[in-house]
């Protein structure tokens, strides 16, 4: 169970990115976060694992207050939260397998990991994760030799290496074509259904929301403007989320 209470983020320079956002996510739910660009979706996801330090409010996960955790406690929390990014954020000059193994960094002996040494089990596990996302044959290629869809699968495999209990996906399909988008979303769905991993996923397209999400929250200018089931988004709600000018497509 993840509970976000009155989460507020004011950037340096006074931009209010999140304004007292509160919501709850039960364990195992697939939550979609929608809203226009700049509405605070990325900030919200990054405040949950404190890649961005929230200004006020609390994030409580499994009874632990993430916002007040010490740096060491924070690392122990982070290693149970996988993260998938819009731009994949792979280390392009490293091999695919190294990128995947880096998901394990929170769990391994720090001294050995600095020398790029991983245990046999971890390497085996990394290969299994790549198998799971269907690119086991690419394991020893450099990450920049892969296509966009393949790179995002590496990103997912990296998150899976953490044995996550929750995955934060920041517009994971925004830079992919519709066919690839569905295949990536299906992997996330599979992880959600089979492994019971909570997924918080920010999305642009409503059809993806309808197809994959259990529940939706919507942000507009840092405010939580909608919380409910995907089917509940009617035309009026849509205009509240995306503004008066917006028109529904698809």
């Amino acid at each position: 169970m993840l509970e976000v209470r009155n989460l507020t983020k004011i950037y340096e320079g006074g931009v209010l990115a999140l304004n007292r956002v509160s919501f709850q996510v039960p364990q195992g739910q697939f939550l979609a976060i929608i809203g226009l660009s700049g509405s605070g979706k990325s900030t919200l996801l990054r405040c949950i694992n404190r890649l961005i330090e929230p200004t006020e409010g609390q994030v409580i996960w499994k009874g632990v207050d993430i916002t007040s955790a010490s740096p060491q406690e924070l690392r122990l929390i982070r290693r149970r939260i996988g993260m998938v990014f819009q731009n994949f954020n792979l280390v392009y000059r490293s091999k695919v397998i190294t990128n995947v193994l880096s998901g394990r960094l929170g769990f391994v002996n720090p001294a050995w990991s600095l020398l790029n040494r991983f245990s046999k089990e971890d390497v085996q596990k990394a290969l299994q994760q790549l198998e799971r996302v269907g690119i086991a044959d690419k394991a020893y290629q450099r990450a920049d030799e892969l296509s966009g869809g393949q790179q995002q699968r590496v990103g997912i495999a990296r998150a899976l290496m953490q044995d996550p209990e929750m995955i934060l996906a920041d517009e994971p399909v925004a830079s992919l074509d519709p066919v690839l988008a569905h295949s990536i979303m299906r992997y996330l769905e599979q992880i959600n259904k089979e492994d019971g991993v909570t997924i918080l996923c920010s999305l642009h397209f409503l059809d993806l929301v309808h197809r994959y999400a259990d529940r939706v929250i919507a942000l507009n200018n840092g405010n939580l403007v909608f919380e409910g089931l995907p089917q509940e988004i009617d035309d009026q709600k849509f205009k509240a989320i995306y503004g008066r000018e917006a028109e529904r497509i698809g």
Partner: peptide, 26 residues
């Protein structure tokens, strides 16, 4: 690129590990 640093930090890596895995290869 700042992205990889963000990604490695998010896995619970220490600062030193982040430098070794996200900064040095670049």
């Amino acid at each position: 690129l700042p992205g990889p640093i963000e990604a490695i930090t998010a896995t619970g890596a220490t600062r030193l590990q982040t430098i070794v895995y996200a900064v040095i290869p670049q």
